[in-house]
Design a protein around this nucleic acid. Structure first.
Lengths: 187, 187
DNA sequence: ACGTTACAAAACATTCTGTTCGTTATTTAT
DNA sequence: ATAAATAACGAACAGAATGTTTTGTAACGT
């Protein structure tokens, strides 16, 4: 990729992130992003179709690594099922978050965090379904599998939201313990 | 309230709802609402400050009754705790939803359902906290109370989201059973 | 050094926003 | 029934944002 492209792309992401830190996604204008990134109007539209497109791209960059890393993790570590796994996939995910790569925590803590976490949940859903299929989790409970998958991914995302809104006062291991406490009993 | 006011207010809500049914909240313009409701521009701004304000008002009308009705319900029925209550607060809520008063299901099923459910979750959180305080729920589990409250309200909302996206293929009683299955074990 | 590609700058039509003001219609109180 | 109050209309307005286009310039990769 052209060095110039990378530079402007980075400048846009950076400006976008700075704006997200102090106002909601809906109230951010393309104009502000352009001004913040100090690029020409036409340049922005050469890179991104719309503001929504920019958001999608950013989400891709944000969650791409984390999710694929977690996907690898599922092969060796597994879900909570069985209760024997020392490091769950979720603990892995949480630790990844706290590394704060690409200032992911900053972005997730912003006013529009729901948008990001909604995107994150989709990836998470696929991930968990995969584990269910791969590991052939024993289906003892009386609820449909896709309800259960949704419940787990949903609960995880809601927990992260809670954690962020509360000022990140817990360590990943604590969070993992909480999550375990509400998920393990139903598997 | 003046008959004229009620009429225009109703026309705006109606037009807004119709628009929500076929496009996302973010892409709806005040102009479209005005045209749909067939009112003057100045009239709209006499009633609502902005589009966001209109949304807030609509949410108030939508959830006001349901939540206050559920609040009453908590005095006699209670949460799942104990497992003796035949009709839980959640079952009550779900049945209320299915009555589809004010076309609440239509609005919740739209592309922007997350916005509504996020609002709903706030009310729900307060409601559940209240029950926890009132009924002095025995705190046996190792997780903080506010985590648990968030987990319950979050799970409920995520379940409704799942139900709506899946085309409402379950009855309130089935849903309640599912929810019971994932919540009761952790109380 | 070359051709290619990205960027800047400016202008553009179009749309939306939120406000204002004078006029008309409806309601409410007398 | 009539008068005063209130709500809606309609038109117009400035300001801002969107997305596109064009032309010239600078940086890139080989």
């Amino acid at each position: 990729m052209d060095r110039r492209q990378k530079k402007t792309r980075e400048a846009v992401f950076q400006a976008f992130g700075a704006l997200l830190a102090r106002k909601s996604y809906a109230n951010i204008t393309v104009q502000e992003i352009i001004d913040g990134a100090d690029i020409g109007r036409s340049t922005f539209y050469a890179h991104f179709e719309t503001k929504d497109d920019l958001l999608k791209e950013l989400c891709g960059e944000l969650f791409g690594h984390i999710i694929s890393s977690a996907r690898d993790c599922t092969h060796t570590h597994g879900l909570y099922a069985g209760g024997q796994t020392p490091d769950s996939v979720f603990c892995h995910l949480l630790q990844h978050l706290e590394e704060n790569d690409k200032n992911i925590l900053g972005l997730l803590s912003c006013e529009s965090s729901e948008i990001f976490l909604r995107y994150f949940k989709n990836s998470l859903n696929q991930l968990i379904s995969l584990v269910f299929v791969n590991q052939d989790v024993p289906r003892t409970s009386a609820v449909p599998e896709d309800f259960l998958v949704n419940h787990i991914s949903g609960s995880f995302v809601e927990m992260v939201l809670w954690w962020l809104k509360g000022g990140q006062k817990q360590t990943p291991r604590e969070l993992d313990a909480y999550f375990r406490a509400v998920i393990e009993p139903i598997l």
